[in-house]
Design a protein around this nucleic acid. Structure first.
Length: 381
RNA sequence: GGUGGGGUGGCCGAGUGGCUAAUGGCAGCAGACUGUAAAUCUGCCGGGUUAACGCCCUACGAAGGUUCGAAUCCUUCCCCCACCA
């Protein structure tokens, strides 16, 4: 019997409601995973996450390797014990940092040399070393080391990065197999489909990855990195058609509420994004009608909660006027409340989508949802 | 009473003849953020008018003066601070 299972319980069109079982518990899908890069979902306590129904969260191999060190985390019992989170964890490999820390790194066939953003020291990441790091961290799902490039990259660059990611996948798989012989909690290695906004590259990558092994699940990477939304949605449809239907698909780094809904409609089961926490720290709150900048003067006397339809602990207790005051006064509770609310918003959004899939109303539900949600900041007037 | 220092846009604070509607910072007003180098970054920020360029008005304690031209130089006055009587 495998430590990992995925069951599609119901599907409507491409949208699926499922259940992903990991050694640290099950995740009902579609689901949003909060990002906890440095072994913490910024401003939130694991108890907050549990209370709002978040089931799976992320960590990051690059960041945790640099600080505090994956060896230390391993010595302290692994990432779950270290950060006090007993639910499923997924670690990203550092592939995204190849993109986000462009300028601090050089890519070669062997791997990537990073100039540490902390102290300038040199660190070499290879598929093998990344597997060792992720093994030390001990997450349930570990992502392959991949090569992420900007979304608008041309076919040649996207093809090169995709090919390199494929070669690195084989090395990751071999290293993972070598490392998985001890009696520790099993880990599932997810491959990542790359290929930019070029349909045939994506199709080719998905097919070759699928032939390369019997994967527990699949990452879809290289999206939400500067390409247009239509391109992103189009590529999702291409990839959806190529991946086995009985495995979870994880759309990496996405996203905004509207992108989650669009992703669900295109067969995505798992999402993650820094948006709810980062935007929360920067004063933006998701609401059913769209994004709201709580620092705006118009909310100075607003007695309503952030979102009148939200049942999160921030919305149950505090007014916009109060949260605005916290932000204007640089009080840390403000960051915390908006982070809490935003993560809750996405977790619940996926729960609602799941219910709609099971009820067979996902098409109408998503149409109504998208029609009401504004992608521009909302104001009262 | 004497000596010295100082009064700059909502606040703090640069600027000592033209490039100054006036550096910075704060406050204020808006915007951005998608596998987190982010509690970060960007724009606006005297008034009027303009879609914008621009144009007009007001402005560096007050009044007068020198000068083609003054926040910057001179005179007088007002106020603040320090020290001495």
């Amino acid at each position: 019997m495998s430590a990992f299972e995925f069951q599609v319980e119901q599907s409507r069109g491409r949208a699926r409601a499922g259940r992903f079982v990991t050694p640290h518990g099950a995740v009902d899908t579609p689901a949003f995973m909060a990002v906890g890069t440095l072994a913490t979902v910024k401003a939130l306590d694991p108890e907050d996450l549990h209370a709002m129904g978040a089931r799976m969260i992320l960590g990051n191999a690059y960041h945790l390797h640099l600080r505090p060190g994956d060896e230390l985390i391993r010595a302290l019992g692994g990432l779950h014990a270290f950060m006090g989170w007993d639910g499923p964890i997924l670690t990203d490999s550092g592939g995204f940092q190849v993109f986000s820390l462009e300028g601090l790194r050089t890519v070669s066939e062997d791997g990537v040399e990073f100039r540490s953003h902390l102290d300038g020291s040199l660190h070499t990441f290879t598929p093998e070393s990344v597997m060792q790091i992720e093994h030390n961290l001990g997450a349930d799902v570990i992502m392959q080391f991949d090569h992420v490039i900007p979304g608008q990259s041309d076919e040649s660059a996207a093809g090169d990065a995709s090919e390199r990611s494929l070669r690195w996948l084989e090395r990751c798989a071999a290293a993972h197999a070598r490392l998985s012989t001890d009696d520790r909690s099993p880990q599932a290695l997810f491959p990542i489909v790359q290929g930019g906004i070029h349909a045939h590259l994506r199709r080719d990558a998905a097919r070759r990855i699928t032939q390369l092994g019997d994967w527990v699940g699949f990452g879809i990477g290289g999206l939400s990195v500067g390409e247009s939304k239509p391109d992103m949605y189009r590529i999702l449809e291409v990839v959806d058609g190529e991946l086995p239907e009985d495995r979870p698909r994880y759309l990496m780094g996405v996203g905004f509420p509207e992108d989650l809904v669009e992703g669900v409609l295109r067969g995505v089961d798992l999402f993650d994004c820094v948006a709810p926490t980062r935007m929360g720290r920067n004063g933006a709150a998701f609401t059913r009608d769209g994004r709201l900048n709580i620092k705006r003067a118009e909310f100075r006397t607003d007695r309503r909660p952030l979102d009148e339809e939200c049942d999160c602990s921030a919305c149950r207790r505090f007014t916009r006027a109060y949260v605005r005051h916290l932000f204007v006064s640089d009080e840390i509770l403000g960051l915390r409340l908006l982070s809490l609310h935003n993560v809750h918003f996405l977790v619940r959004l996926m729960r609602d989508a799941r219910d709609a899939i099971r009820a067979g109303t996902i098409v109408a539900w998503s149409r109504d949802w998208l029609a009401r949600y504004h992608t521009r900041p909302v104001t009262t007037e």
